[in-house]
Nucleic acid binder design. Structure first.
Lengths: 205, 205, 205, 205
DNA sequence: GATGAATGAGCTTTCATTCAT
DNA sequence: GATGAATGAAAGCTCATTCAT
């Protein structure tokens, strides 16, 4: 009923206003009224699209994750090599959040509010994301370019953790600098590890 | 006379009660009254030790991090090999949080509340922690067991990210299972990366 | 649509309830809840009309002073003789407060609460009142019925002081008796002073 | 037991601190702790000398009124003429408060707080003060220098009201200027009234 | 669907007062 | 008498949510 198409702007404007306000003042300091004003609607209208304030959090997450995952699948489908896919994923992760500090703040800080965090984390889009990463790793293992004995579940979690921490650090540091510059270094680290393998060659370029 | 020592537990009891309550019901659902009751003090007494509710957050962080970092330094000093040190650090990180799910919940979720998060993240103990990790990596590089061209700042952030994500996943999954079981896998991953290096030999066991 | 007029009494009912409660229990003993209950609105509704509890004080003052001053001007305009005007003013002052002991209590005691007192005293309606008194005295001086050398600013302050003290004494004494009975005596005193001798000359200057 | 002599400074220092703090921040904004700190005693010590915070108000009043009334009686006893006495009283009233704006603020504003105001007003020192004024007026009437038909009770109240308002206006205006300069004008007004005509008779009856 | 006035539960914090030392 | 840590009652105010229009 409350399809986005029906009121093309209203729902999206509320979400955009919520992201902006949450990133600037935090979830608890943001009042529904602030969001409604910024979205150009009445307070009550927010409740026509969302059950309550907390439900804005998963909605924001979905709003961003849905097209992100769709884009991601398209981009990954274009590449054959699992290592290239992994690199593309890291690139997209960092560039998506690195291009919008407000959104990144909401993702790295506000979305973790207790009540909804578990729910967001354990279900839906984030699980899909983990599965995509894991899929790449398994393809790589099958392909022979990744280690036979790799625990792909653990490794995908670790890769996500690295990326997540990179974004968080960037957000906390004020969003200065270009987050995507870290891709090469992180990719190299993920692929080759810290150790100086005797036959250590071919950097990530 | 009325030294804090006279009431040996009061401050500590408040912090313990706060950790317990935050982990169970979340920061915002926890009322000062709940904490005070659980600590066996009057509501007002909480305010003799802490400026306000939010100030409990950094205090909890400090309360845990201080002895943790002290322990860590002692343990690390006993080891000579940087790779052993790195493993010990991962071990201590996972075992410290893995042994107390309530504390882990507070660390992985509640401590990240907007207002104080930046503060906690950017200052003090967490920075010390990053510096310790980075110190190990630099020693490893000097030692020759880690890569010459390693960006130790980035690598230490990545290692923290992996550990942090491992703990978060464990917390979200309900704290089932033994978090420290992941040490070998993570250490191996960090040291050797995903790739099956031609001369791929003997994992870290 | 949701004009204040739609709920014709809401603001006025809150003020009336505040006057009643302040006069009976004092400002500090009166809780917002008491006022809201008496006015038949929710606690929060009080804050739709007034910024906070203290702001009720100037609002009460204005609510009473505005029509009082309007009435006063009308009555004064009907009289030509400045001495008659002065008497009318004294009469209206004493009868307005003398007919409502609750209101008088609020005016003589509660309205003098530190925080708002200066503001009420120094601005707006009270100044208008002083100016009206002073205007009468100046007309009287021009008219020749009052002394040439009269310091009208000082005299208007003194007249107000006398009236104010008469009301306060009446309030403190429990509001017994008719306050307006004092008009003749006060007017006589103001006009002729204490001294008896018609040939009394040589003022103290 | 808690005789002033026993701890010569302590009680007096508490009162002085209370006057200072009340005049600067008002009664309700002043905390017992502020007073105790300023007096150089512990919080609890205040309660050795005063039953509670509100009891400081009558105590301040007494502390000032007692010596004031004693002084006043001495000064009045030196004068024979009732009109001189009246002038002296006005002079002492205005100079006592005009020399200490903090004290004047407490007297004109803070002392009027609902709970204690009635008590202060209706009993003790203020009544004595009214009686002294009235005594002067009666002596003047007996003496023949004041009107035969004077309602001395009402007149003494009016005189107090004039003086009181003069002080209040001075306090509100910021304590600028010399309050005692108004004595001549006020005395003249009180004695001769507003009217100009020496042969002005026909009172308002 | 939209509105926004009205609601009222809920909680942090303050601070006068107490009392063991 | 003096102290000051501890107490805990008390209430102003906020703001998510509702619902009559």
């Amino acid at each position: 009923m409350h399809d986005t198409r029906e009121q093309p702007g209203k729902r999206a404007r509320i979400l955009a206003a919520a992201i902006a306000s949450f990133s600037r003042h935090g979830f608890y300091r943001t009042r529904i009224r602030d969001i409604a004003r910024a979205a150009g609607v009445a307070d009550g209208t927010v409740y026509l699209y969302f059950a309550n304030k907390e439900d804005l959090l998963p909605a924001i997450f979905e709003e961003v994750m849905k097209p992100y995952l769709a884009d991601l699948e398209v981009e990954l489908a274009r590449l054959a090599d699992p290592c290239d896919k992994l690199r593309k994923l890291m690139e997209m992760h960092l560039s998506r959040l690195g291009r919008d500090r407000g959104l990144a703040t909401v993702f790295q800080v506000e979305l973790r509010h207790a009540t909804r965090f578990m729910e967001i984390y354990a279900h839906g889009y984030l699980n899909d994301y983990f599965r995509i990463i894991q899929g790449i790793l398994e393809a790589g293992r099958a392909d022979g370019c990744l280690r036979e004995n790799l625990d792909t579940a653990q490794a995908s979690s670790a890769i996500f953790g690295m990326l997540d921490e990179a974004v968080t650090a960037w957000v906390v540091r004020g969003g200065e600098g270009d987050l995507t510059e870290r891709i090469d270094g992180l990719h190299d680290l993920v692929v080759h590890g810290l150790a100086c393998t005797p036959s250590d060659e071919a950097p990530s370029a």
